[in-house]
Write a protein that binds this DNA or RNA. Structure first.
Length: 214
DNA sequence: GGCCAGGACACCA
DNA sequence: TGGTGTCATGGC
């Protein structure tokens, strides 16, 4: 058994898998729409919806904010939950529009309250809020999604049964730069798809035999 | 043909 | 706080 720190785990995964280039999108608007659409949904379904939204808006935030709810529902129908998700998308983009879709201005205006403000928006929960902080607002935060919980459980930690419990146990995240934090989340999710979907897969991975100390 | 995917929310105890 | 049902679609 080899014990690693969180940052050592990141380096190990980066060496084992290579850079993942997350988030896979060309614009911040595309990241936001994708982050909402992917909630409990396979990315392949999300891609169909993203293509529809791109065709109709070019991911111009002003156009997305002005979409008719029914039109938006039709565009994102392939990725499921289109009623909830269309509402979430419109709320977020109308909220962004208050500050002219200027992400730096929004960040400055809300300061330390940015995460709390994001959580007030309907359809934005803890994970999506952290994803937006990490990939849209350039804050090096840790995203504690289901794959993270499974990974850290496989690495020997007990009791990580939900988002907050894991999030609370991550103290020493300061050593991660922004790009490293973005890469780390991508690595963990891609690792999860390969090695965590079934119980035994982890033991076949390059992390078998490792434990983590937080 | 059932299961599930890069969650969130309302409702309940 | 913590657990459960619901929301929808497409791939396997």
């Amino acid at each position: 058994m080899t014990t690693v720190t969180l940052y050592q785990l990141f380096k190990k995964m980066l060496a084992g898998m290579g850079p993942q280039g997350w988030w896979p999108a060309d614009t911040k608007s595309e990241i936001i729409v994708g982050a909402i659409l992917v909630q409990n949904t396979n990315w392949n379904n999300v891609k169909k919806s993203l293509a529809n939204v791109e065709t109709s808006t070019g991911f111009q935030p002003e156009l997305i904010a002005r979409l008719d709810m029914n039109d938006l529902m039709a565009l994102i129908q392939p990725s499921g939950f289109h009623k909830n998700k269309s509402k979430a998308i419109l709320e977020v983009f109308q909220w962004l529009g208050v500050h002219d879709f200027d992400f730096n201005q929004i960040k400055q205006h809300h300061g330390e309250n940015l995460r709390r403000e994001l959580l007030k928006l309907h359809g934005i929960g803890e994970e999506t809020a952290d994803v937006l902080l990490l990939y849209v607002f350039d804050e090096p935060v840790f995203v504690a999604d289901k794959y993270d919980q499974q990974l850290f459980t496989a690495l020997g930690l007990a009791g990580l049964t939900n988002y907050r419990k894991l999030k609370k146990r991550i103290h020493q995240f300061d050593e991660f730069s922004l790009t490293e934090a973005q890469e780390f989340h991508g690595l963990i999710d891609e690792f999860g798809k390969l090695y965590l979907r079934k119980a035994d897969y982890f033991n076949e991975s390059f992390l078998a035999g490792y434990t983590i100390k937080l």
